[in-house]
Nucleic acid binder design. Structure first.
Length: 423
DNA sequence: TGTCCACAGGAAATACGGGGGT
DNA sequence: ACCCCCGTATTTCCTGTGGACA
């Protein structure tokens, strides 16, 4: 390894560190990622955001909805509707926190619980989570009846007489048996115990109430508050607050914040994603040793896109990885649609080479649909008349993305394909 | 106009795994 | 240790179908 001898190593290192410090962009990394902030810090950021009148309208509506509590009245249930990243959860948590403090001050007994269903789960798991939050049961994987869980929850709060606000985040994530879950919350629970139950639902689907059992629905008196996607002005405010806390403002070029807010508001209106773009741009700029420029933002956008796919497939089950790989490889080069039959053949042969149990076609077909939902591929049912009816598969990923997907999946298989094949 | 391909995609059956009760 | 229960994954079985072709 060749070493430069002109300058003493110590001096060199010192000089490098100095320039690095001068060009530091990220001053406080934690403020670029909510996961790393504790509740108090999150609320502090939120307060600043609310103080510049973002989400003003929603907070007003929330206040008027909950106002009856202070007249010893019983407000109906509430449903917050809006896309992901529009601040439903944080706003509500913040609001509940304030409400709690206010109730304490006025001696009104009030409890609130946040049931987070942000990852899809069946009724059983949802109830189990709730039971855990209430300290009514431990975490079960399986093996206890739904009824048992419900009774335990009831027992736990039977003697509580004040307001009980249950914040059910992302209700529509209760898969399959949403009806029985709601039936318990809306019908059985209020009848079984004396407390004043107040449920707040959250959903990103406007029509989440549409296909629930009408018998449950009739009990579900609900008030709705809509959370619109953030517009560019709001996003700019939100980003500015983050920048003040986390970044070296001198290293951000004119127009960058505007660009990020514009792109975000146009494509999703999601504040979390906007902050992610900012954070990624800062990382890239720091790596390249330049200020954050417009070009850097573009790079960040691309990189986020790619990482999204790679991360998703990395954490996916082996079968799904195999399916995607066989589709990508049987696609190689041409961009003409392929029928699902051809894909199944190549999947089958791939499975035998890596010694993976190959699924039957019906199951494979479901895997393919899943890949479509995630956006890796597009499928379309078409009929070739005499030559049958099938789904055509198209891969529309940028080549670099599909290349890195290919590499990642192969790596995943190399790691455990070797020892298996030896057995 | 009817046939018939090559699947789609729903429903039910079966397999499996893991945990609670006793 | 044994059995039973529940949730999930996969298989098996099945009916349905758009349109090129004869």
């Amino acid at each position: 390894m060749p070493v430069e001898v002109q300058m003493r190593v110590e001096d060199k290192i010192e000089k490098q560190i100095d320039t690095l410090l001068q060009n530091t962009i990220i001053l406080n990394r934690r403020y670029l990622d909510d996961e790393q902030l504790d509740r108090g810090e999150q609320f502090k950021v939120l307060k600043e955001i609310f103080d510049v009148n973002v989400r003003d309208k929603e907070i007003k509506e929330l206040s008027s909805h909950f106002a009856p509590i202070f007249r010893d009245d019983h407000p109906i249930h509430l449903s917050l509707i809006g896309k992901t990243g529009t601040g439903k959860t944080v706003t509500m948590l913040y609001f509940l926190n304030m409400l709690h403090a206010l109730c304490e001050k006025r001696n009104i007994p009030m409890r609130h619980v946040h049931l987070d269903l942000s990852t899809p789960k069946p009724c059983f798991r949802a109830l189990n989570d709730l039971a855990c939050l209430l300290d009514a049961a431990k975490r079960y994987k399986k093996g206890i009846s739904l009824d048992e869980l419900m009774s335990r929850i009831e027992d736990k709060i039977r003697n509580y007489k004040g307001y009980f606000i249950l914040f059910v985040d992302e209700v529509d994530h209760v898969r399959r048996d949403l009806d029985s879950f709601l039936k318990f919350l809306v019908r059985r629970l209020p009848q079984a115990i004396p407390l004043k139950l107040l449920i707040v639902f959250t959903s990103n689907k406007l029509n989440w109430q549409e296909n629930i059992d009408p018998r449950v629905k009739s009990f579900l008196k609900i008030n709705e508050i809509l959370f619109d996607p953030y517009n560019a002005v709001d996003l700019k405010k939100i980003l500015s607050i983050r920048i003040k806390k986390a970044l070296n403002r001198k290293m951000i070029q004119q127009g960058v914040v505007e660009k990020i807010s514009a792109v975000s508001s146009r494509t999703h209106g999601d504040a979390r994603k906007a902050v992610e773009i900012l954070s990624k741009s800062a990382q890239i700029a720091e790596r390249e040793g330049t200020p954050i420029t417009m070009d850097i933002v573009d790079m960040a956008l691309e990189e986020i896109e790619r990482d999204k796919y790679v991360a998703m497939i990395k954490s996916a089950p082996k079968q799904l990885q195999a399916a995607l790989l066989s589709i990508i490889s049987s696609f190689s080069g041409s961009s003409k649609p392929i029928s699902i039959g051809t894909c199944y053949e190549s999947y089958h042969s791939f499975c035998s080479t890596v010694n993976l149990h190959a699924l039957k076609q019906r199951a494979f077909s479901d895997l393919v649909s899943e890949l479509d939902v995630y956006g890796f591929i597009q499928i379309r049912v078409i009929s070739k008349g005499r030559y049958g009816r099938s789904r055509d598969i198209t891969v529309n990923l940028p080549t670099e993305v599909s290349d890195s997907l290919n590499k990642v999946i192969l790596m995943e298989f190399d790691l455990d394909a070797v020892p298996k094949s030896r057995i």
